[in-house]
């Protein structure tokens, strides 16, 4: 369950962003639409605990994360938040398998071979598990990004423009993957985008 109340944030020497309240029940998904510069990524980073709001609060499963100190917030984010980026970011010196291992290690989630093998299989990455990320195709890299966002079974999956640079076919595929992984993790899925193509895939939409 996710609740936000009166969230606002301002960058140094810049206009303030005031965000509408959000309330999601368990397993509920939300699509946040908005034009560039409206503060979509800022909202996503606030929900991820990467940014701290000047005002307002964020409550996830009855825990007010805006009240956590830096150390506790790091731990909370690592265990409960999964981030999926438009351009997948990975550790370039590690293989696909090792990237997933590192994800679990830094999240302080015990690394189980079976968990990693399962997600590799689900996302059709088993064959490339020993390859370095720079040898993967765009599609494989994107699936790896999703795997990194969900392998630790987070409570909230946050995806930032996951379909913007994809064609229609791959756009559908990525949304289906994200939904199915959110279901498997029993997590809330929040996607922020300006991509209108996926509007119909979600019942719950918020326009900034």
């Amino acid at each position: 369950m996710l609740q936000t109340a009166n969230l606002s944030f301002s960058y140094l020497n810049s206009a303030s962003f005031h965000f509408p309240n959000i309330e999601l029940q368990n397993n509920e998904h939300l699509l946040i639409l908005g034009e560039s510069g409206i503060g979509k990524t800022t909202l996503l980073h606030l929900l991820a605990g990467i940014l701290t709001p000047q005002k307002g609060e964020i409550v996830i499963n009855d825990k007010t994360i805006t009240n956590l100190n830096s150390k506790k917030l790091d731990i909370y984010r690592g265990k409960n938040i999964g981030l999926v980026f438009q351009n997948t970011t990975v550790i370039s010196s590690l293989s696909v398998y090792e990237n997933l291992e590192a994800r679990l290690y830094f999240s302080k989630v015990s690394s189980q071979k079976k968990v990693i093998d399962d997600i590799l299989q689900q996302l059709d990455l088993t064959e490339v598990k020993n390859q370095k990320p720079n040898t993967l195709s765009t599609g494989q890299l994107q699936r790896l990004g999703i795997a990194l966002g969900v392998i630790h079974r987070p409570k909230i999956i946050l995806a930032d423009e996951p379909t913007s640079s994809l064609d229609d076919k791959n756009c559908d595929l990525v949304i289906k993957l994200l939904k199915s992984q959110a279901k498997k993790s029993d997590a809330n899925l929040i996607i922020i985008t300006h991509d209108q193509r996926i509007k119909n895939s979600f019942d719950n939409t918020l326009v900034l």
Partner: peptide, 10 residues
């Protein structure tokens, strides 16, 4: 990559 690792909880 270091920023990414921070999002992992490091």
């Amino acid at each position: 990559e270091l920023a990414l690792v921070r999002t992992y909880g490091a």
